[in-house]
């Protein structure tokens, strides 16, 4: 029983990842909760990955296509249109 409560950091981080996307089973939830009470390193892992995922989600890329590529693309599309 003592072992059941005492999960490894490897398992704990796996559960942290899983919890970021779905519900854990009650047993898993409890195991993770207890682990995080005693393990600052895994707690840090949780905070940091949550933070990164949040920022990755809101990210909008603003790079533009270069002019040469755009012209080439315009030609290809025009050719396709004129076929029909």
């Amino acid at each position: 029983m003592a072992n059941w409560f005492n999960i490894s950091c490897k398992k704990a981080t796996f559960l942290i990842s899983k919890k970021q996307e779905s519900k854990l089973a009650i047993g898993e939830s409890l195991q993770l909760f207890i682990h995080l009470l005693i393990c600052d390193v895994c707690k840090l892992f949780k905070t940091q990955t949550n933070y990164l995922l949040h920022n990755i989600k809101i990210h909008q890329q603003t790079e533009r296509l270069n002019e040469a590529a755009k012209e080439k693309m315009a030609t290809v599309v025009k050719d396709e249109i004129s076929k029909s």
């Binding site: 990210h59 909008q60 890329q61 603003t62 790079e63 533009r64 296509l65 755009k70 693309m73 315009a74 599309v77 025009k78 249109i81």
Partner: peptide, 19 residues
């Protein structure tokens, strides 16, 4: 308006895809 697609949308699609 297919002949304007590249002008109107290529940059925004490209940014989206590149990410």
């Amino acid at each position: 308006n297919a002949s304007s697609w590249v002008d109107n949308y290529s940059d925004i699609l490209y940014g989206y895809v590149l990410a």
